[in-house]
């Protein structure tokens, strides 16, 4: 995938591979954990949980940056369905490894990293350009504000 940026990345983050692959896109960041079943509408790839800061926003085609998964055991099933409806995230970065988040990433088959050297939630903002090279365990970030 060609990158539009010719400049060096502003930040480089290293992590552990959850699912391999390389992808580049725009970040959607939340400081709140995400529920799958009852928290996401898989037909739209949209967060629907009441009081969630991403409520009404879609992660389809975005790099989803979030602390981790919570809620029902239907997490993987709901995220898996977003793959069927073409509303899946492009890639994922999460801090807390749970069975829900790990299985969800596996069946989404999107490049995913966890266990970072520095916290992506402190360094990536919604709208930043992010390149995940999960095979190398590397995240490159170009800040939108620079």
């Amino acid at each position: 995938m060609a990158t539009v940026d010719v400049r060096e990345p502003d930040i480089v983050i290293r992590g552990r591979k959850v699912v391999g692959g390389v992808v580049e896109g725009e970040a959607l960041v939340t400081q709140q954990t995400i529920s799958g079943w009852g928290g996401v509408n898989p037909m739209k790839g949209e967060v629907i949980e009441s009081h969630h800061e991403l409520r009404g926003q879609s992660f389809a085609g975005k790099i989803l940056v979030f602390p981790g998964a919570k809620g029902s055991s239907g997490w993987s099933g709901v995220f898996h369905m977003t793959r069927l409806t073409d509303k899946a995230p492009l890639g994922m970065l999460f801090n807390i490894t749970t069975t829900k988040a790990a299985l969800g990433a596996v069946v989404l088959r999107v490049p995913t990293l966890t266990d970072f050297d520095i916290d992506p939630l402190d360094h990536i903002e919604t709208g930043d350009r992010v390149r995940i090279d999960a095979d190398k365990g590397e995240v490159l970030v170009w800040k939108k504000s620079v």
Binding site: S73, G74, W75, G77, H80, T98, T99, L103, G104, V106
Partner: peptide
């Protein structure tokens, strides 16, 4: 663990689940 649909369906066939958590 709080397993998901895909991991339980696979475990039904393989009698295995990751030794985690």
């Amino acid at each position: 663990n709080c397993e998901g649909r895909e991991s339980t369906s696979a475990a039904m066939l393989a009698n295995r689940i990751p030794n985690f958590g």
